[in-house]
């Protein structure tokens, strides 16, 4: 079991109703960690264009999760 901090932005924050949470997880990668978040938050849903970052670096959804990581879930971006 690892303990990680998960942060939600924009529409994901509105869907979960929270900015962040600490979670205990066995998720094998970031995709699985997001699936667990969906199970906890009924309003959260898959977004094909969503991005993910770990410890302020952009990451791949297949990347592993590490103890103490700060995982950032980004809904589809729309700058400019």
């Amino acid at each position: 079991m690892m303990r990680v901090r998960v942060r939600y932005f924009a529409s994901f924050r509105e869907a979960t109703g929270i900015d962040d949470e600490w979670v205990d997880t066995d998720a094998k990668n970031l995709r699985a960690l997001f699936d667990e978040a969906m199970a906890r938050h009924a309003g959260l849903d898959h977004e094909p264009a969503a991005l993910v970052a770990v410890n302020d670096c952009m990451a791949d959804w297949d990347a592993r999760v590490g103890e103490g990581d700060e995982v950032l879930f980004f809904p589809p971006v729309a700058g400019g």
């Binding site: 924009a10 529409s11 509105e14 977004e47 970052a53 809904p75 589809p76 971006v77 729309a78 700058g79």
Partner: peptide, 27 residues
């Protein structure tokens, strides 16, 4: 690339009082 990659989100506010995050499929 700025539009495609940066963690920036845009919420549009409409005349009818609604507001929506742009590019958000679920929204």
């Amino acid at each position: 690339e700025v539009k495609r990659r940066l963690p920036i989100w845009k919420k549009e506010h409409y005349r009818d009082g609604e507001a929506r995050w742009v590019n958000c499929r679920h929204c």
